[in-house]
């Protein structure tokens, strides 16, 4: 993984629990978290508050990956979607637990905890979020 274990470790709160943050000035929510709100700028400094996002949302658009990067080549074909979370931010993630022809724009999805990739058979394993359809 580019950046190695140190970068992954720094991003664990976001990757495991979808921790974003909220501007204390305009209340906009961001994921991944930002140092400052791009709308309120200086007014937001010191007022950015971490929040755990629900991990639920709706597919805005998607594509089917047929030629994946090295770490994902055994999973092709697989869907990758942009998901609008309930709190507002949009997030890019793999869709799992459904057939690729079932993926639709507007589909309700929720996050699930999966292996994302590993540094070969001897390296670290990187976990994080993927999304799956919400069962009615």
């Amino acid at each position: 993984m580019a950046g190695g274990v140190a970068r992954f470790w720094r991003e664990i709160p976001q990757r495991y629990n979808i921790i974003g943050n909220k501007c204390g000035s305009c209340e906009r929510v961001f994921f991944p978290p930002r140092e400052a709100c791009p709308h309120c700028r200086r007014k937001s400094l010191g007022k950015m508050e971490d929040i755990k996002l629900s991990g639920k949302g709706e597919i805005i658009t998607y594509t089917i990956i047929h030629v994946g990067p090295e770490a994902f080549k055994e999973q092709v074909p697989y869907p990758v979607a942009i998901i609008k979370l309930e709190e507002g931010p949009q997030i890019t993630a793999q869709i799992v637990d459904c057939n690729i022809d079932e993926v639709k724009i507007g589909m309700k999805v929720e996050n699930t905890f999966r292996r994302i990739q590993e540094d070969g058979y001897t390296g670290a394993i990187y976990y994080g979020y993927k999304f799956k359809p919400v069962k009615e």
């Binding site: 999973q75 799992v96 637990d97 905890f113 999966r114 292996r115 994302i116 394993i125 976990y127 993927k130």
Partner: peptide, 16 residues
């Protein structure tokens, strides 16, 4: 298990 599941992911889902 799917290719992206192991004992850690199953444990997390059950605990959640």
């Amino acid at each position: 298990p799917s290719i992206d599941q192991d004992t850690a992911t199953i444990s997390v889902e059950a605990a959640r």
